[in-house]
Amino acid sequence: MPESFLRLLRTREAGLLGLNLLLLAAIAPFFPAFLRPGSLAGLLDDTALLILLALGEMLVLLTRGVDLSIAANLAFTGMVVALLDQYHPGLGLAPVLILSVLMGAALGAVNGLLVWRLRIPSIVVTLGTLSIYRGAVYLASGGRWVNSNQMSPQFLAFVRLQLGGVSMLSWIAIACAVLVALFLRRSVRGRDLYAAGNNPSAALYAGIDVGVMQFSAFLIAGAIAGLCGYLWVSRYAVAYTDVASGFELQVIAACVIGGVSISGGVGSVAGVVLGALFLGIIKNALPLVGVSPFFQMAVSGVVITGAVLINARGTQASALRILERRPA
């Protein structure tokens, strides 16, 4: 259908895809190696953790909240599963994966309960739990590092499994993106999530419990962050207190670039994935061009601010009609 195709072209996601391709096209003449399949798979592998965390963060942003604690959740969960593996290397991988998801979900549920039951603003709640979870990493480890030689082979190998030229880590990100997309698009709770964030008072009138929606978002975001705890520690083959410190800001940036509205109710999985890839391309390409790390931050900053400006432009309120319409 040409009309629906045209509509698709006008979406923010299509624009973002175009921007990503443009960026790759601009890099290609100078560094042809950047576009080789192996490099692109590497780019995806580098960005997979950002994509995963951004998917969870998006759910929270959709309900008008924000989760600043996901990177701390990741570090805490990552440390706990690394210690589990260190002291019980014979357990295998299944307990590690299950524990990381459950523990992450539990930490997310703490955020969710405080927001839902006590009606504390999510930025305040997660600012607090950010410090608590980060401090808990120190408590769990006594400030020690868990290094790669203390990790079991299967603990390290899983994320590096190659399937069709793409790493297991990337496949997990892809699978997670598909699941979250299905959840948001096809499940009742997923649709209610959008409604609750888009207009909380109207959601109340429609019989949707806004608090439960907020709780669900934090729960899922926590579970994903917990899973990422294992994935991160395994991929970088080290666990310590400051793992992924400050990473939550990059995650929120990926969401905002991807068109997720900070004021809730608007955002898509495709947008978030493209937003994360956009940051990933910049991060991987700028060093090639010889831009210093300090200037890289400035470039990312300009891009994020630009994305926020574009977002703000689309949400201007129109005047309510009071005057009677008259026949022309």
Partner: peptide
């Protein structure tokens, strides 16, 4: 108007009782 600006018209109509196929929303 207690409606949802960012959602489609169809969803605004069926916000309280979306048609389902199994457990998923039947768009």
């Amino acid at each position: 108007p207690v409606v949802f600006d960012a959602l489609t018209v169809a969803e605004n109509i069926f916000i309280t009782g979306r048609p389902l196929k199994g457990r998923s929303v039947d768009w």
